[in-house]
Simulated scan of single mutants.
Amino acid sequence: MVFKVYFQESITQVPVREKTKTVYVEGESVRDVRNKLADHGYNIEFVQAVENDYLEYEQQNEDYKVLEI
């Protein structure tokens, strides 16, 4: 399953919407995705499952790229 992760680049950075970045990660669960990203030093705000029509919509975005971990 593909998950969309909203994050700040630094664990010490306060979440601000304008500075929030996203990345797509394949994993089995939210916990699995968080564990995969634990050593990246991200301040993870939210992890959302992306499937069906929503996944098709996201794949049309030119920035869509699944991070391989």
Rank of each mutant, 00 (worst) to 15 (best):
M1V: 05
M1R: 12
V2D: 09
F3L: 04
F3K: 00
K4G: 02
K4P: 02
V5N: 01
V5S: 05
Y6K: 09
Y6G: 03
Y6I: 01
F7C: 02
F7L: 10
F7P: 01
F7H: 07
F7M: 03
Q8N: 08
E9I: 09
E9W: 01
S10W: 06
I11W: 03
I11S: 11
I11P: 00
T12F: 15
T12K: 14
T12L: 15
T12G: 00
V14S: 10
V14Q: 11
P15E: 10
R17K: 13
R17C: 09
R17E: 15
E18K: 10
E18W: 02
E18G: 11
K19L: 15
T20M: 14
T20D: 06
T20E: 11
K21V: 00
T22G: 04
Y24I: 03
Y24F: 15
V25H: 03
V25E: 04
V25G: 05
G27R: 06
G27C: 07
G27H: 06
E28L: 13
S29Y: 06
V30D: 15
R31N: 14
R31A: 15
V33M: 07
V33C: 10
V33A: 06
V33K: 03
N35T: 02
N35S: 12
K36D: 04
L37K: 03
L37D: 00
A38R: 12
A38K: 13
D39I: 00
D39S: 13
D39K: 10
D39P: 01
H40A: 06
H40S: 05
H40V: 08
H40Q: 12
G41W: 07
G41F: 09
G41K: 09
Y42L: 13
Y42V: 12
Y42D: 00
Y42N: 04
N43H: 13
I44Q: 06
I44K: 09
I44R: 09
E45I: 15
E45T: 13
E45V: 15
E45G: 11
F46L: 12
V47C: 05
Q48C: 10
Q48M: 09
Q48S: 14
A49Y: 04
A49V: 08
V50D: 05
V50I: 15
E51V: 07
E51P: 00
E51W: 02
E51H: 08
Y54Q: 12
Y54E: 14
Y54H: 10
L55R: 10
L55H: 04
L55A: 08
E58H: 07
E58P: 01
E58G: 08
E58A: 14
Q59A: 08
Q59I: 04
Q59V: 02
Q60S: 14
Q60D: 08
Q60N: 13
N61C: 11
N61Y: 03
N61L: 11
E62F: 08
D63W: 11
D63N: 15
V66S: 06
V66G: 06
V66N: 05
L67S: 08
E68H: 08
E68F: 03
E68Q: 12
I69N: 05
I69S: 02
